[in-house]
Computed example of a mutant assay.
Amino acid sequence: MTQSSSYTANFTLDKAHYTECYTQSSTLEHNKKTYFKANILTVFGLIILFATPVNPYAAWFVIALGILETLSVYYHKPWWVTRQMLSKASNSKVTLTIDEQGILTESFHVNSRILWADVTSVVETDLGFVINFSLGKSVTGKDIASKSYISKACLSDEAISFIKAKNPVMV
């Protein structure tokens, strides 16, 4: 006879939660490769400005796009957190239920379930778990993947152990 396990936790989608989500799940690195597109746009704009008879407004527009791209990469985290804080789900209470079927997230705005059969991997971070899962196949036949973050701050030790035990691929 197997025992059915179910763990429930509550948390609020506040700035601290969104900041933790971003820092623990983001793969953006600030290196030369990340800024490559911005640098190319800026250099291309400068070439247009100084080496061609094209209207300088077009050149300045391309230079401005390069600078905007640089700023969007540099301020990616605060911009992402701000966008989440401006969403209608911000500051709402969320009930998280982890059971034999999967992970159920319920709030006033969103009700979603990630089935364990759809989970491709679980990456344990210092402060939580990044759940990678499949949403199915696209029209072209490729897998549509997504990820979700669960903070350990709202989980009991038993729930953490349960996630580790249910994990198909622990990274």
Rank of each mutant, 00 (worst) to 15 (best):
G141E: 11
E124H: 03
V123P: 00
N111W: 02
V110L: 09
V171N: 12
P168L: 06
S25K: 06
I63G: 11
N132H: 15
V139H: 13
S72G: 02
A9W: 05
A117D: 15
T8E: 14
P53H: 04
E29Q: 13
I40S: 05
F44H: 01
Y18W: 13
K33T: 12
T2L: 05
L104T: 13
V139N: 15
N55R: 07
L115H: 13
P56Y: 07
D157S: 14
A145H: 09
D99T: 04
Q24G: 01
Y22C: 07
S92Y: 05
T42F: 15
T120E: 07
V62H: 05
W80T: 09
D99H: 04
W60M: 10
R83K: 15
L46N: 06
S121Q: 11
L104K: 14
W79E: 02
L13M: 10
S90E: 05
P168F: 06
T82H: 07
T42M: 11
L28A: 08
K88N: 10
Q3L: 10
L13P: 01
K33G: 12
K32P: 01
A165V: 04
I114M: 09
F162H: 03
S121P: 00
V122R: 03
F11I: 08
L155K: 04
A51C: 14
E20T: 06
L68I: 12
I103D: 04
L41K: 03
W116P: 10
T34L: 03
L115N: 15
I150Y: 03
K37H: 10
Y22D: 13
L28N: 08
L41N: 05
A58S: 04
E100Q: 12
L65N: 14
A59C: 02
T95N: 09
K147P: 00
I40F: 14
G102D: 07
F162Q: 02
A58T: 08
L68V: 11
L86E: 12
A89F: 01
D126G: 13
K37C: 03
E100G: 01
W116S: 10
S134M: 03
T120F: 00
F108Y: 08
F129K: 07
T140P: 00
F36P: 01
G136P: 12
T125I: 01
K88S: 13
A117G: 12
Y149T: 08
K166G: 03
K15R: 15
H109C: 00
A16C: 01
L71Q: 09
A59M: 02
T97A: 07
S92P: 01
L13Q: 06
K32L: 12
R83D: 03
Y35E: 02
S25D: 08
A59R: 02
I48K: 01
S26H: 10
E69V: 01
T34F: 06
M85F: 07
T27V: 14
V119D: 02
K152M: 14
V94C: 12
L104V: 08
L46F: 15
A165D: 07
S151K: 10
T42D: 00
H109I: 04
T125R: 08
S4C: 04
L86A: 08
A51D: 05
F50G: 12
T23Q: 11
S6G: 04
Y18V: 09
S151G: 09
K33M: 12
G45W: 06
L41E: 04
S90F: 05
H30W: 10
A89I: 02
Y149L: 06
N111P: 00
N91R: 12
D126E: 14
S4I: 14
